[in-house]
Design a binder for these strands. Structure first.
Lengths: 179, 179
DNA sequence: CTCTTCATGTAATGCGTTACATGATTTA
DNA sequence: TAAATCATGTAACGCATTACATGAAGAG
């Protein structure tokens, strides 16, 4: 299978909600969807140009103050087709799940190795912090539980929470196996 | 932070257990650690050469039959140092967690969208199958529960199982929110 | 007036996948 | 004798990160 270039679909998906500038798109990867994808501006700006060349986007110039111009991109009908085709296509099982810490554990074969416990405890601190942070986000963004519009946002956050929950539980189990 | 090249450490870790050929290393990524990392032979063979040039590995030639020669690689003291330094270093929080399906859900904002249910059900089939497969692996490879030697192998499998468990639960929750 | 944020690009480099390429050995 | 597996490499290409580069606008 060829490389997928999923970034283009994410950009189209975000622009389908509302037109955005490259700068705003970049920020989007630091908030909501940052839990399940990341991208830098150096990747986003060229991709925007490619999508516009392909006819999936158009942009309008906005001037702030005296000189500063920014480009606000909007999705076209062609772009919407591309987006919908991706959404309708079967999702291949992710080949990913790369986890550096899990690997490290694998390479310390002896349960009595003195390095194990401090490693696990350090991870526990990090993942517990991340988990509480995500739980707080979920509670403040969705105080009334699952919404009808914006369900995906809710589900993605809930998924992130329970992913961290699982990781913490796993670390706790692992700790019971080493001295 | 520079690129990490984790593959080198995985190779060193595997060779620390026992000397292996490039072919055998490649297969290792399809079994145990395949749950948390993947690599093709086109990446492994060059990396073996680099590691040998760096003095982390040595190889001996073995001849099978008449002509077929294979290279069996073993870790050196230098290589062992590299491995231990990696194991001792703090593990940076994974920036990953790329999940195409979670993204798709995010981009279907309406909980009543007719596409939601079949998408979720398709994923449920896949992840349930994967989960039962992993549970079976865990049960057959470790019928007596957690071992003292080879704990990492046990933990990595258990982690994979509970990861799939979480994913299935999440999908089930998501299904309760759409008609 | 300085620092932070807004705003947009390009260049260099590395990681990872797919495809290309070859040949030996074993098994059915 | 044909197919599957063993066995080792290189080449092309795309994705992603880091660094380089520039400048305007707002806040303190």
């Amino acid at each position: 299978m060829a490389q997928r270039n999923l970034l283009q679909f994410i950009i189209l998906g975000l622009l389908h909600q509302t037109p955005l500038t490259g700068y705003e798109l970049t920020k989007a990867f630091d908030s909501d969807i940052g839990e399940f994808w990341s991208a830098q501006h150096s990747q986003i700006y060229p991709q925007l140009q490619k999508l516009e060349t392909a006819g999936s986007l158009t942009h309008t110039e906005e001037v702030t103050g005296e000189k500063l111009a920014r480009k606000r991109y909007a999705i076209t009908d062609t772009g919407l087709d591309t987006l919908n085709n991706w959404l309708a296509a079967p999702t291949p099982a992710s080949t990913n799940g790369k986890d550096e810490f899990a690997l490290k554990l694998y390479f310390i074969p002896d349960a009595n190795d003195a390095r194990l416990r401090p490693m696990l405890e350090a991870q526990q601190v990090e993942h517990t912090a991340k988990r509480t942070h995500l739980e707080h986000q979920l509670a403040t963004k969705f105080p009334d539980g699952a919404p009808t519009v914006g369900l995906g946002h809710y589900l993605i956050l809930q998924h992130a929470v329970s992913r961290e929950h699982e990781y913490c539980d796993w670390l706790a189990t692992a700790l019971t196996h080493c001295r």
